Computed example of a mutant assay.
Amino acid sequence: MERRQFLKQSALASSLFFVPNFIKAFENLATTSLGYKRLVIIQLAGGNDGLNTIIPFNNDVYYRNRPTIGIQKNELIKVTDELGFHSSLQPLKKLYDQGHLTIINNVGYPNPNRSHFRSTEIWQTASHSEQYLQTGWIGRYLDAYGKQPYNAIEIDDSLSLALKGQHINGIATKNPQVLFRTSQDPYFKNVLKHYQDEHLSEHNLGYLYKTMIAAESSAKYIFEKHKTASNSYEYPNNEFSNQLKTTSRLINSGINTKVFYSSLGGFDTHAGQPNTQSRLLKIYAEGIEAFVSDLKQQGTFNDTLILTFSEFGRRVKQNAANGTDHGAASNVFIIGNQFKTPGFYNDMTSLSDLDENGDVKYTVDFRSIYATLLGNWLGVEDDTIVNKTFSRLDFI
Rank of each mutant, 00 (worst) to 15 (best):
L142I: 02
N302S: 13
L161Q: 11
G379W: 08
S88F: 03
T384D: 09
G375F: 01
D294Y: 03
Q9G: 09
F117P: 03
Y96P: 11
R64K: 15
T125G: 07
A271Y: 01
S241I: 07
L205V: 09
I385M: 10
S230Y: 01
V380Y: 05
K174V: 04
L89R: 11
Y36M: 10
D359C: 07
N357D: 14
N151D: 15
Q318C: 05
L378Q: 09
R367Y: 03
L95M: 15
K210Q: 13
T173Q: 05
G327D: 02
L16M: 15
G358Q: 08
I334K: 06
L29P: 10
D294V: 09
K193D: 12
A329S: 11
K24M: 08
S129Y: 13
D325N: 13
H203V: 10
D325G: 09
K24P: 08
E286K: 13
F366T: 06
N59P: 03
I69D: 01
S391K: 14
N111P: 00
D383C: 06
S253E: 06
F366I: 08
Q134I: 05
Q98L: 14
G35C: 03
T120L: 05
F180I: 05
T32E: 15
S88N: 05
Y187D: 12
L163G: 03
S158Q: 10
R392A: 11
I69P: 02
I23S: 12
K317D: 00
D325I: 06
I168P: 09
Y141M: 12
S33F: 01
K94L: 10
L92P: 07
E75K: 15
T257F: 01
S88T: 08
P236H: 09
V191Q: 09
H199K: 15
Y233G: 01
I396Q: 04
T349A: 15
V380E: 06
P112V: 00
E234S: 11
R279P: 00
A320E: 10
H100Q: 15
F333N: 13
L51K: 07
V61Q: 13
L250I: 14
F180E: 12
G375S: 15
A172P: 07
D185G: 10
S127G: 02
L354Y: 09
H194C: 07
L192M: 14
T247A: 12
G84E: 11
K147T: 12
I104C: 02
D81S: 14
T125K: 08
A328W: 01
